[in-house]
């Protein structure tokens, strides 16, 4: 695994290579997360298709890692059915190696609104919001919140109370710190790198 990380940090310095890699990763991420959350909700492709007004073949198509023609409108429909929100975020290339290495089923799962610890009126949630997330048994949620561990495209469902704003684009994006440009991206320079923005 360390071999992959080291190779990527060098390879991703090339713009053309990094675009090919990142776009392929994005397609794989979207397709796999839809499948993982559908299975987490114990839904068949046919049931999900019925819920968003499409066909089972349409769901099968969008769950293909090689598919890249999904629309934001369709993804929003899926988010509603899954009881999560859709988040779209631009990211520097240097965060990609970590995201690749942490890509697994648990990290892709998301709790639905009714079970969302971030929305519960419970003392444990305060600890969770103040940075003790590892004690919350929701690894995927923690990955989304832990800073620098997100992916270019995420479906998450954990708005934090202090992140509120009135924009229609959601609460989190405005909290992000400025991203380094491609050539300033410290994540590809072999040095320590972390996003300071909160998710």
């Amino acid at each position: 695994m360390r071999d992959i990380e080291n190779a990527l940090r060098t390879e991703l310095r090339d713009p053309e290579y990094s675009e090919g890699y990142a776009e392929s990763f994005l397609n794989a991420y979207v397709a796999t997360q839809i499948k993982v959350i559908r299975e987490q909700r114990k839904m068949t492709q046919a049931e999900l298709a019925s819920a968003i007004g499409t066909t089972q073949a349409g769901i099968s198509r969008i769950e293909n890692v090689n598919y890249s023609s999904w629309s934001t409108r369709t993804l929003v429909k899926l988010a509603r059915v899954f009881g999560v929100r859709l988040k779209i975020s631009f990211e520097p290339f240097g965060t990609l190696p970590d995201e690749v290495l942490q890509f697994n089923r648990k990290a892709l799962e998301r709790v639905k609104r009714e079970e969302d610890p971030g929305l519960a009126d419970d003392p444990k949630i305060s600890e969770y919001q103040s940075g003790l997330a590892p004690f919350v048994p929701a690894a995927g949620l923690w990955n989304a919140l832990s800073g620098g561990k997100t992916v270019p495209f995420l479906v998450v469902n954990n708005p934090r109370s202090e992140d509120k704003d009135d924009s229609s684009e959601g609460r989190v994006l405005q909290q992000l710190q400025p991203r380094p440009s491609f050539h300033d991206d410290l994540g590809m320079g072999g040095r320590e790198y972390a996003i300071s923005g909160r998710y």
Binding site: I4, L8, E11, S18, G20
Partner: peptide
């Protein structure tokens, strides 16, 4: 092409992980 190599390595990494 570099772009193809990027896509190819991405799929190989997914398979390996």
């Amino acid at each position: 092409s570099k772009r193809d190599r990027g896509q190819l390595n991405q799929k190989m990494d997914m398979l390996q992980i």
